[in-house]
Amino acid sequence: MKEEAIFSGFGGQGVLSMGQMLAYAAMKEGKEVCWFPSYGPEMRGGTANCITIISDSLISSPIISTFDTVIALNQPSVEKFEPKVKPGACIIYDSTNIIEPPKRKDIKIYPIAGSEAALKLKNLKVLNMVILGAYTQLKGIVNPETVINALYEILPERHHRLIPLNKEAFELGMDLMMKLV
């Protein structure tokens, strides 16, 4: 098993955390993991992204240019990374936010109304958890419970009161994906 994914969006949308949570959960399940963030000027107001690779065996390059899964939370990310989806692979995007959806015919496209779902929970910041839930449901690479448990270990204790809300968002994302596939 090998998954080469990229999470992308605006700085502040929590795309780096999404990749990190996935990497952490996969590590807990005994996988090899590698997480590589974009860092630098593009993080301030521009787009941010992280490559997350999960594998049963040792991972070679952390730098890759085509992906099994692209997760796009804003328009520039769709434009930048849709061409980099491997043929037959998939893109998941926030269909509330993104006006021009992906168009390629040789890939699977999954629109998830993530921002709308997050607004229902009265906190736009959990958009990343909605989409991560949808991703987890679709790919089945990690157990959803491992991701939720990972939150307790990754987040500092002062943020633990927010975990139930994050869990709710995550499950909402899983439901949205279940309706699509």
Binding site: C34, W35, F36
Partner: peptide, 10 residues
């Protein structure tokens, strides 16, 4: 290099 410094692994 910056990538080895910034990336996360097990």
């Amino acid at each position: 290099d910056g990538a080895i410094g910034q990336m996360m692994e097990k």
